[in-house]
Write a protein that binds this DNA or RNA. Structure first.
Length: 279
DNA sequence: TTAGCGTTTCCTGTTT
DNA sequence: GAAACAGGAAACGCTA
């Protein structure tokens, strides 16, 4: 195993090879190589990776023994690269973006080799560093209002360029996020891992499933990064959230801004459920 | 090939 | 007045 392979190994792999020293080794490697190109791609990576690795590692004790990756504070304008330990919330927790009650059955104890490289379809981790300067609005084309000079705009989402012309403009695009990575699951998984979302959102009442966006635009941009959509805003995200009311995945919380509540058609957020999925 | 789903985008109007 | 909420309309991209 060369250095690059070693650095790309997930902690559970290192643990499997080196035993208890694996964690320590991983932390050391991380601190040496923490110049992650993207302030948030690690969390995106994590969410993607977890959705697959959780299924592979069901039944394994979760590598939950590492510290908070975020640290107590985050700057106002963005998330700092952190001593994040990939996999530290991987197994044993509800799988981000892929629960849907279908998590369990595909046992298999994965961990096949160290390369967790882009295998999920069209490389979900191919985030262009230029794309991923989160929270710097300059990199987010202001797609909101149309050009006022052109008078009234047609309602609805405008047609995109054809695939060919689009390729010419923005190069290869990866496929749409696979099924299972729904918005409400993404939100739920952020909430279930406060060490990852610290400063972004929090539970208002965990028993009731009530939660609040603390940094709504940051969450939206994180969601946008997951969906390879650099123009995501809280306005758009909240529209998608409102569609959940009808399906009773979310319930209205009247009179409280940025506060939502999980509905009866959501799952995986209740403490007993979350704990259950860890066993 | 196509229908349906889950968004995404844009809009207008209302409420806080 | 700004920000958030509400919901209609239509398009997009994916899966079945």
């Amino acid at each position: 195993m060369d250095g690059a392979a070693l650095c790309s190994c997930p902690p559970e792999e290192l643990r499997a090879v080196f035993g208890p020293l694996g964690d320590q080794l991983y932390a050391q490697l991380w601190s040496l190589t923490s110049s992650f190109p993207d302030e948030l791609s690690w969390i995106i990576d994590l969410l993607e990776q977890d959705s697959t690795s959780f299924q592979e590692t069901l039944g394994d004790p979760g590598p939950f023994d590492q510290g908070s990756p975020f640290g107590p504070e985050m700057p106002e304008d963005g998330l700092q690269p952190s001593p994040y330990h990939p996999g530290s919330y991987g197994a044993g927790t509800p799988s981000p973006g892929s629960l849907d009650g279908s998590t369990g059955s595909t046992a298999g104890t994965g961990a096949s080799g160290c390369s967790h490289s882009s295998d999920s379809g069209a490389s979900d981790v191919d985030l262009d560093p230029r794309d991923s300067k989160l929270f710097s609005r300059a990199d987010f084309p202001d797609s909101k209002k149309g050009d006022p000079k052109h008078g009234k705009r047609k309602r609805g989402r405008p047609r995109k360029l054809s695939r060919e012309s689009r390729d010419g403009v923005e190069g290869r695009k990866s496929k749409h996020a696979p099924r299972g990575t729904h918005l409400w699951e993404f939100i739920r998984d952020l909430l279930l891992h406060p060490e990852l979302n610290e400063g972004l959102m929090r539970w208002e009442n965990r028993q009731e499933g009530v939660f609040k966006f603390l940094r709504s635009e940051a969450v939206a941009q994180l969601w946008g990064q997951k969906k390879k959509n650099s123009s995501m805003t809280y306005e758009k995200l909240s529209r998608a959230m409102r569609y959940y009311y009808k399906r009773e995945i979310l319930e209205r919380v009247d009179g409280r801004r940025l506060v939502y509540k999980f509905g009866k058609n959501s799952s995986g957020w209740k403490e007993e459920e979350a704990a259950g999925s860890r066993n």
